[in-house]
Design a protein around this nucleic acid. Structure first.
Lengths: 146, 146
DNA sequence: TTTATGTAGTTGCATAAACAACTATATGCC
DNA sequence: GGCATATAGTTGTTTATGCAACTACATAAA
């Protein structure tokens, strides 16, 4: 079924490229326009900390689908920006718990607003039903490969 | 509609993260298992050159949705690997035309086979109709933000 | 023909990813 | 207790991205 192969190939390029790149760049641009000087990778870490503070680096790895070195360096950079603090865990001395600073708390509402606006831009003209199916497909792709 | 917001937020994370990361990692792993020693970014450039040889770097930018510095460096690395050659254009002396080497030609069939296998793994259990809708959504997202 | 403006490509800098090798601490078993 | 093994986090190296500044060439208008 060569025709189907070709169409799948297109999906492939969408999944790995075009759409996610476009979303990432627009989000970064909108952060900058709003005067929010963080990267989207840093944002993806803060996003989980805003939901629940004091996560370990390993928990951040699981939440953000990154490996340990990536989280080490993202936390390094967030610490440099004074947005988080590493606090050694008392229960397990190998482990750091990551806490938000007041500066990071201040950033939350503006940042989430920009993210929501960007999402609305991205999904303009897309129906709720289409979104549900796209989510299902992307979820199945993830489950197939994780 | 806060419930819908939340569900959109999930799509967001799928588009920018989970699924595309999983696909990229699996593809890289499968290349390595097959003894194909290129990165998926290099592959995405070769992919277009296999379709049509002698593209300019600007045409590769458009085809791969990368900026010019990214293509400059990908072509640098592909040249180091002796997979492509820069040939100055005679029509426009600012422009390089990128040609595949015999080594790159040799790589094509194995590489495309691995890519197709990986795509089949990724889409296992996903129907043709679902794929079409996911493509449509990702395309609209891209068009909304490009 | 000169000048302005646009386009192709390169370079420098900061951030991030994948992978491998490493240290330190915890846990489970003899 | 003491040893093997697992887990949390760090560091080094290579590759890649985004942005800004730059060079060289092309084109169009005065």
């Amino acid at each position: 079924m060569p025709n189907n192969q070709f169409k799948r190939g297109e999906l492939y390029s969408f999944i790995t490229g075009k759409a996610s790149t476009a979303v990432a760049r627009r989000l970064q641009k909108n952060f900058k326009l709003a005067g929010i000087e963080i990267t989207i990778e840093q944002w993806s870490v803060l996003y989980h900390l805003w939901k629940e503070d004091g996560l370990s680096q390993q928990q951040l790895c699981d939440a953000t689908f990154r490996d340990k070195p990536s989280i080490t360096r993202l936390v390094d950079n967030l610490e440099k920006l004074k947005l988080v603090k590493r606090v050694p865990s008392k229960d397990d001395r190998r482990s750091n718990l990551i806490y938000l600073t007041p500066e990071a708390d201040q950033l939350q509402s503006r940042t989430m607003e920009v993210a929501n606006q960007t999402l609305n831009e991205a999904l303009e003209g897309v129906t709720h039903g289409q979104v549900e199916i796209a989510k299902e497909v992307l979820h199945m792709v993830y489950e197939n490969l994780k």
